[in-house]
């Protein structure tokens, strides 16, 4: 458990440090109440709120990423035991990766990595 204690302490210390900075800011800022301003729009009043249904054009990439990323679940435990299990584990994993990589190459040919 002591490993977790160290992590918890680190979190605590970091948060305390940030809180200290906030306190220092409060003491030294020329005013404490936040200025509520319109967002910067080249000198204009923003015509619309920026928070909107933002079209992230790279969304096809996210799908490929998620498929490939699930593989990482297996990758770390595999890394620990591969030396012990020998050649078969290497082959199995790289066949797996090869299949996924083929998918990635296909996606590339389909133009999934271009968006703008």
């Amino acid at each position: 458990m002591s490993a977790y204690l160290g992590l918890a302490m680190s979190l605590l210390v970091a948060v305390a440090g940030v809180a200290g900075l906030y306190a220092l800011h409060r003491l030294n800022a020329v005013a404490n109440n936040p200025l509520i301003s319109k967002p910067f729009a080249s000198g204009w009043i923003p015509e619309q709120h920026a928070l909107s249904r933002y079209h992230a054009r790279y969304y096809p990439v996210t799908l490929i990423f998620l498929a490939f990323d699930v593989e990482m679940l297996f990758m770390y435990p595999w890394a620990v035991v591969v030396a012990r299990l020998g050649a078969s584990a290497v082959i199995e994993m790289f066949v797996f990766l090869g299949v996924l990589m083929a998918g990635v190459l296909w996606a590339w040919r389909e133009g999934a990595f271009k968006w703008a």
Binding site: L63, I64, A67, V70, L100, G103, A107
Partner: peptide
């Protein structure tokens, strides 16, 4: 996963 990737 491959099928997911392709069909998605």
């Amino acid at each position: 996963l491959f099928a997911t990737l392709v069909s998605a």
